[in-house]
Every structure is written in C-alpha cells, then in structure tokens.
Computed example of a mutant assay.
Amino acid sequence: MEEKNTPLLVDIGGRLLAVRTEGEGVPTVVLEMGLGAAGSIYDAIAKQIAYFTRAVWYDRAGLGLSDPASTPRTIQDLARDLHFLLQKTGIPGPYVLAGHSLGGPVVRFYRERYPDEVAALILIDSSHEDQRERCLALLPPKSSDEAGNLAQLRLALERQWKDPNANEEKIDNLANSQLLRTCQSLDDLPVTVVSRGRSAQDPTKYPPGLVEAMEQAWRQMQCELARLSPKTQHVIATRSGHMINKDEPEVIVEAIRQMVIQVREQCKL
C-alpha cells in the first residue's frame, strides 16, 4: 500500500475507487458512509481506530476521488464494489464492517453475500427497510394549505424516496428495501447497534407530536435491528442526532474498539 492517509486509486474493473488505510492488526475495520458522504467524513474516527487495529475507509462511486458508475444503484452494487476493492487491495480479513445510515444496509447486505469475510457488524443509526412506510403512516392527512416543512417531508417520503434521481448517489431506495428483506437474520454474528439519543428534527417546525412519534418509530426500528442477532449490544449516543460521527465520535470509536477485542478473543487472532 501507499503511504498512510494517501488515497490509493484501485481499479475494480474499469472504474477507480479511492481508498485509504491506516494502522496495523486484525480484524480490519472497514467504514461505510451514509448517503452522499465521501470517506473523508470519517477521517478523524479512522485515525483513532488505527491506534488499535487496521482501519479502511473509501469513497463510493461518484464521490470524492472515485469514478462514477452507471445508475441507478442499489446496496447490491455498493456491496459488490466494496468486495472487489478489498480483494484488489489485498487488505486482509476478517472484517468488522461499520456502516452509518445508508451504510448500515450496505454492510448487512455485504454479510449476506460474503458471510465468510465478516467477523462482526457495527450499525450506526442505520437505515431500516421499513422506515419510509412507517414514517408515512404517521403523517397527518394531506391538506392544500399544509406548512412548508411538512409538505417537504411528505414529498421526500412519497416521491423523492422512490426516485433514484432525487439523491446524490442515484440510489434506488425502494429496491434496497426489498433487498434488505432477504437479510432478516445475522445468525449469531456479533453486532453492535449505535443509535442516536435525540431527534434529528426541530419539533417546532412540524405539527404537534409528529417529531416525537417519528423518533419513537425510529427507536423501535433500531431495536429491531438489535434483534437480528442474539449477540447484539445496543448503545445509545445520548447527546447525538443522526450524525453521531460529529456529535459523539468517541461513542463510535469505543464501540468499534470493544468489538475488535471481542472478535480477537472469539477468533483467537
């Protein structure tokens, strides 16, 4: 590999993906970002992880320094890209895959397709396959004079969620939900679910009780993710909104550190 923190451009079959690695040791921790986020958003966290094991983070297709790919895309495409990237770079497994938001479904699907490569998962305020339908069910009946914030939320859930062209990476979220429904068990894989502790929205901008109801639904979905494996730890980042990596990065680093210790003990690494 090149000098630490210098992006390496890796050909995964006619396209280049930019990857960084730092630290030594096993298991290797691979960071998967949220929708539209280049790998650099996790630079600081990756450097902390590198104190106790190897950290790998990268730019998905069309982000940062990586080449674009044909669209629309699904978590199947993203998992395949990551698989080829890790193979081409020769970065050793087993892997602890840590995925934030959209990255949660990506790492879940990766484990479904390549189970022998994955030692553990960290799901960081991860998206859930049913979140669109459950959030839509909480909205009040549509009215011709509804407030702008509510109208924008309804538009995002009713139309933009279904349209891959409405997000930065041209991700097909409806197809992703169907794919995730094939990943309903993680067997006895070690998993840590890290969930936000405070609302991602300002409740004063929406009808009374709506944000609270949506947060309750989100907490329920996070608990459902924690039940995908009997070997799950559920950690609440009490001072964080959705961007836990900015609000409480130390919570993520500690969750990963504890998982690395657990995997080393179980696998005798």
Rank of each mutant, 00 (worst) to 15 (best):
L65A: 14
D187A: 14
S240W: 02
Q216N: 14
V263C: 11
I236K: 04
R159A: 08
A98T: 08
N149S: 14
S66T: 02
E224M: 07
S66A: 06
E265D: 14
G64E: 06
G90E: 04
L65E: 14
C267S: 15
D81S: 05
H128I: 00
L17I: 05
H242I: 01
L180C: 04
G103I: 00
S229L: 06
I236M: 11
L153D: 03
E212W: 01
Q262D: 14
T204K: 15
I122F: 02
A151C: 06
I124A: 02
P230T: 00
L180D: 01
A18K: 02
M243S: 15
V263M: 09
C183I: 02
L31D: 07
E24I: 09
P105K: 12
E24K: 15
G197D: 05
C223S: 15
V19I: 15
R264W: 05
K231G: 04
E250M: 07
M259N: 08
A255W: 00
A119F: 03
P27K: 10
C183R: 07
E168F: 04
D145G: 12
L121C: 10
L9S: 08
P7T: 06
D11N: 06
E24Y: 07
E248Y: 04
L269P: 13
P94N: 10
G104F: 01
E248H: 05
C223R: 15
A119K: 06
Y58H: 14
D81A: 03
A147Y: 03
A166N: 10
A98Y: 03
L85H: 01
Q87A: 09
R196Q: 10
A200E: 14
